[in-house]
Amino acid sequence: MIVADKKPIEEIIEVIKDHDKILVLGCNECVTVCEAGGKKEVEILASALRMYFLNNGKEMVIDEHTLERQCDHEYLEEVRDRIDQYDAVLSLACGVGVQFMAEKYHSTPIYPGVNTCFLGATEQRGLWTERCQACGECMLATTGGICPVSRCAKRILNGPCGGSSNGKCELGKEVDCAWHLIVERLKALGRLDDYEKVCSIKDWSTDRAGGPRKVIREDVQV
């Protein structure tokens, strides 16, 4: 899922402070799972903002709503009838949702209420960790299911580097060496021969290097 984190409330206040009526808009998908932008977070943030502006003598109408998804035309249409009532929308969706919303509703400012961080997993409640950088050419089949692009600090494809020590990255003891994990995993799978294969130079044109990307699937287009 896309993992997001809360923006500091001071930053949000600075952005919305000159408006009189805003809509805090949550998303029921990834940001709900990572507890940054779902219905619950919309309620908490909207209350905190109301309290702040009330204490500072500013009348500010702050409404709440949460959509099933903000990265889908169908669900974004749900707010079409009411969006003109607001000076601005504070979207708690990921960067995709904020932008899709802004593309649809040209005359309303759409502000981000979260920082979109990475593609990751919930290790435990309150701990999300990165697993994928969406490089566009998955190589997990040969690395025992552990991604060196997202989990090695240097994105080394034939590792480990000289900084790996006792299974930890040179960045610090709290960071696992991705290549140590890969070797251990390949051992467990009885496929250590895969480690001997030299990975060829990566084609980064499928990553961000090729500019904004598209997936076109004619077989599912209507």
Binding site: K202, W204, A209
Partner: peptide
């Protein structure tokens, strides 16, 4: 210019 203009299309910018 973006690497896609040149002769090393797979390069990361």
């Amino acid at each position: 210019e973006d690497p896609s203009f040149g002769d090393h299309h797979q390069a990361a910018s």
